[in-house]
Every structure is written in structure tokens, then in C-alpha cells.
Amino acid sequence: MTEYKLVVVGAGGVGKSALTIQLIQNHFVDEYDPTIEDSYRKQVVIDGETCLLDILDTAGQEEYSAMRDQYMRTGEGFLCVFAINNTKSFEDIHHYREQIKRVKDSEDVPMVLVGNKCDLPSRTVDTKQAQDLARSYGIPFIETSAKTRQGVDDAFYTLVREIRKHKEKMSKDGKKKKKKSKTKCVIM
């Protein structure tokens, strides 16, 4: 069974824990209790493949930012979460993405942009803004509501699919490099 290491990042209060708990335990946590770091595991079937999701729910508070490099190193894919009623959390996505790329030393890291709290009427981040940002990053965008469960499975499952595509691409690139290195030079 394939294991996928997913990391949920975003500013404090955007609903990272609520999304994760909704996926794992099928219930909505409405009281806000700032996370330092929590880890969850769940076995699911995605596109006919049974897999184990190892999900790291991270601290959004700035005082825990020193811990970010460590979990970013171990993560295979990242859910970059903002709240649709919090423009600052949307603007912060850029910083999370840049930090992930720096730590992973790669421009090509599996990510999904997630606009959470889409059940709320007080939207300050337009869907088109988020779609445009995701398009500019070359990553999928999904709106979710941890409260109603809308888009929750889709967000995590899409990230797994992005990781699969990335692994497939990397193995193809690896095979191309191996083929090239088999060419021999004969000096007579």
C-alpha cells in the first residue's frame, strides 16, 4: 500500500485542523484551538488504489514558523489553505509557496490551493482571484467548507493525484537520464 505524506499549511484560523478532522473523523470542530502540530493517518481508496494518507496539520501562528522547514522537508505534497473571508490569509499563500519551493529546492512541488469556509456569506476573496492565482502557479484550486464537508475529500484526493503525477514524471525523467548515460565512448 502506497503511503502519501501530505502537509496542510496556511495562516492561523483558516480551518486547516477543521478540514483535516472532517476528512479523518467526519465531524466539524467549530471551536478554535490553535494547533502546534498534529499528525493523522487514514486509509482510503483513490482511483481504485488503496493508500495510506499521513497528514500533518501544522501551526499557522507566526511564533511556530521555525518548525516549518522541518515538516516541509518531509512532506510530499501540500494543501495551501486560505479562508475566503480573510484576504490576508490569501496573500500569505505566496509566502508559504515560496518557502516550500526553497526548502524542497524545487520549482515543481505537488500543491493544491484550497479556499476554505465557502459556506460563509462574508467572502472577501473572489473565486476568480483564487483561480487566477492557482493557474499562475500551475496547481489545482478547490473551494471547501469544513463545516458542510463540501470539497473536503476532493481537496485531499486531488493532492494525492498531483503527487502521483509528480512521481510518474520524475521516474520518466530518471529513465531518460539513465538511457543517456548508457551511451559509451570508444577510443581507438
Rank of each mutant, 00 (worst) to 15 (best):
V160Q: 02
Q129H: 12
K128M: 11
A130M: 13
Q131S: 10
K182L: 02
T158D: 04
L133H: 07
D154M: 09
K172G: 13
D126T: 06
Y157M: 14
T158A: 11
D153V: 09
F156W: 03
F156D: 00
K178S: 11
F156I: 15
S136K: 11
Y137N: 05
S136C: 12
S181A: 08
V160C: 01
F141N: 01
T183D: 15
V125C: 12
A155S: 04
G151N: 14
E162L: 02
R149A: 04
L133A: 09
G174K: 15
I139D: 00
R164C: 05
A155H: 00
K128C: 10
K167L: 03
A130S: 05
F156N: 01
D132W: 04
K178I: 12
K167E: 08
K128V: 11
V186N: 15
K184P: 07
H166W: 04
K165Q: 08
D126Y: 07
A155E: 00
L159A: 06
K178C: 10
D132L: 07
D153S: 08
D154I: 06
K175V: 07
R135L: 10
D153K: 04
V152M: 13
L133Q: 08
K167G: 11
T158L: 08
S136Y: 14
K178Y: 09
F156A: 04
D153T: 09
Y137A: 05
A134R: 01
K172I: 15
D132S: 09
L159D: 00
D154E: 15
V186G: 15
A130G: 09
D153Q: 11
K177C: 14
S136G: 11
H166P: 02
K167A: 08
K167C: 04
L133F: 14
T127G: 11
K169I: 14
V160A: 04
A130Y: 15
D126C: 10
I139S: 03
K169L: 06
L133M: 15
D132A: 09
V152Y: 05
D173F: 09
E162C: 04
Q129K: 14
A155D: 00
K176F: 06
K167D: 11
M188S: 15
H166T: 07
L159E: 01
V160K: 06
K180V: 02
E162Y: 01
A146L: 00
D173N: 06
E162A: 07
K178D: 15
V160H: 02
D132T: 05
Y157F: 09
K167S: 12
A130L: 14
Y137K: 05
Q131R: 15
Y157C: 13
R135N: 15
L133P: 01
H166D: 07
K169D: 12
K180L: 13
E162Q: 10
T127Y: 10
K147E: 13
R164V: 07
K165G: 11
E162V: 02
T127A: 11
Y157G: 10
M188F: 01
E162T: 06
L133D: 06
K172S: 15
K180M: 09
A130T: 04
L159W: 01
T127D: 14
V160Y: 03
K165S: 05
R135M: 05
D126E: 11
D126M: 06
D154T: 10
I139T: 02
V152E: 01
A155L: 03
E168D: 12
D173C: 04
V152C: 10
K128H: 13
T127L: 08
E162R: 07
K128R: 11
V125K: 01
Y137Q: 05
Q131N: 05
Y137V: 08
K165T: 05
E162W: 01
A155M: 04
Y157K: 12
Y137S: 09
Q129I: 11
Y157L: 10
S136F: 07
T127K: 06
K176W: 04
D154C: 07
K169N: 12
K165W: 01
Q131V: 09
M170G: 12
D153C: 13
R135V: 07
S136D: 14
T158V: 04
R149Y: 13
R164N: 10
A146Y: 00
R149L: 02
A155C: 11
Q131M: 09
T127I: 11
A155F: 00
Y157W: 06
A130Q: 03
T158N: 10
G151K: 03
F156C: 07
R164F: 08
G151W: 02
Q131E: 13
S136T: 05
A130H: 06
F156P: 00
R149S: 13
V152I: 12
R135S: 09
K169G: 06
Q131C: 14
K167I: 03
L159Q: 00
Q150R: 10
